[in-house]
């Protein structure tokens, strides 16, 4: 699949095409492995890069100035350098096994936050909300899709009516959420 085809597939809602991008994982892997990282790190960083790329494509922020592979490599590189800097600052001795440290983070989280997580709370609220509001809000808020594109994908007559629909959905979602509950959720 060419870059052009991939972009148009993604824009038309064929998210599975993101899998094709893993063809570029190799270069990120070899670079990260040569810069104090391991394969696990590379996979994490690359996944983040795909998400950034995908959001930018959907929100119209992505400008095709270079090949997608170059773009992904750039983002991955920046992300990894940031992570390295963060590690340096915190002087955290790094586990040889990335999995272990992640497991520990998880454990720390479980100990300090006994209550439900914000994302789970929202997940339940969103499924109560039902379609098309659920998909519409997800696409608008997480992917940052433009209202013109939302109107097209969700079959609204104009960007304006899509915006109105989004606000109505937000209002509906808000009405199912109590202020005290959501503020108490820390993460």
């Amino acid at each position: 699949m060419t870059d052009q085809e991939l972009l148009s597939q993604l824009k038309s809602g064929n998210e599975e095409c993101l899998g094709q991008l893993y063809a570029h994982l190799g270069m990120v892997k070899s670079w990260i492995c040569r810069n104090n990282g391991n394969e696990e790190d590379a996979l994490d960083v690359f996944q983040e890069a795909i998400i950034v790329f995908y959001k930018n494509v959907i929100s119209g922020k992505y400008e095709q100035r270079s090949k997608i592979s170059t773009y992904l490599f750039e983002i991955s590189k920046r992300q990894w350098l940031n992570q390295l800097n963060r590690r340096k600052r915190h002087e955290q001795p790094r586990e040889a096994n990335g999995f272990e440290s992640k497991f520990e983070e998880e454990l720390i989280y479980e100990v300090t936050h006994r209550g439900p997580r914000l994302k789970d709370y929202l997940g339940r609220a969103m499924s109560r909300l039902g379609e098309p509001c659920k998909s519409l809000l997800e696409t608008a808020i997480f992917l940052g899709m433009r209202m013109e594109d939302i109107a097209e994908r969700f079959n609204y007559s104009s960007a304006r009516s899509a915006s109105q629909q989004k606000l109505r959905c937000l209002k509906k979602l808000r009405s199912s959420i109590s202020y005290e509950d959501i503020i108490a959720l820390e993460q």
Binding site: R117, L118, K119, L122, G123, L137, E138, F142, I182
Partner: peptide, 16 residues
């Protein structure tokens, strides 16, 4: 503040 939490929650959930 509520909407801030809502946006944050949706983003986290969707990302996961």
């Amino acid at each position: 503040r509520v909407y801030e939490k809502i946006y944050e929650g949706i983003t986290k959930k969707e990302k996961a």
